[in-house]
């Protein structure tokens, strides 16, 4: 150490360099002095500019349907309701007719009501992991603030239902994997004319 205060001055040098890096002319000046200069401004002005999130970025769950909203993948098995760590999923169902027999749509049972209290949900993704039908997936919509406690923070079945195309759009890699898995599960159509034995 040359003199007392040299350490402080050297530290201030670092601060000054970073100050220069936040301006275009500062970076030009630094490069002119043969110093490495990277973009020093790392913040964004949020409501005007939005951060680009990773594809896997997860927020709250939603329910996937194929084609029309009544063709949802959920069969109301209630595994997610049981496994949800903070217990924020409420399912009524499966739907039954007057005689108490389970109703079916497109060959599957379906829930009468499916509610998620997103003020309790902690976005852990365990419901997606345990779902055997790939019916529930994680959304990446995060601008959901509301001034009331219940109301818009308890998402019902209509609000949760989103098409598979939407899932394809927000998470292409994961959605293609899910589609491939579902296609493998689906029973193959029987050939009309069975091949003859030679």
């Amino acid at each position: 150490m040359a003199f007392i205060g040299a350490g402080v001055l050297r530290g201030m040098g670092v601060t000054f360099r970073t100050f220069l890096e936040t301006y275009p002319w500062g970076r030009v000046l630094l490069r002119g002095l043969r110093q490495p200069a990277v973009e020093g401004l790392v913040t964004i002005e949020y409501p005007d500019v939005k951060q680009k999130h990773a594809e896997r970025f997860r927020y709250f769950p939603f329910l996937v349907y194929d084609g029309t909203p009544d063709n949802l993948r959920c069969v109301s098995c209630k595994i997610c309701e049981q496994e949800c760590p903070p217990q924020c999923i409420y399912i009524t169902g499966p739907a039954k007719d007057e005689q108490g027999r389970p109703q079916k749509a497109n060959g599957r049972t379906f829930p009468v009501e499916f509610k998620i209290d997103v003020s309790i949900c902690m976005s852990c993704r365990i419901c997606v992991d345990v779902c055997p039908f790939d019916a529930i997936e994680m959304d990446n919509q995060y601008e959901l603030s509301s001034s009331e406690r219940f109301g818009s923070l308890i998402l019902n079945k209509q609000e949760l239902l989103k098409p598979n195309e939407y899932f394809q759009r927000i998470k292409p890699t994961e959605a293609s994997e899910v589609d491939a898995r579902l296609a493998a599960k689906r029973p193959k159509p029987q050939p009309v004319f069975p091949p003859k034995a030679p």
């Binding site: 999130h53 990773a54 896997r56 970025f57 997860r58 993704r125």
Partner: peptide, 15 residues
């Protein structure tokens, strides 16, 4: 934290 988000989907509550 951006790396964590890319791998796990969340910056801090990775799970």
């Amino acid at each position: 934290l951006d790396l964590f988000e890319a791998a796990s989907g969340s910056r801090m509550m990775c799970n």
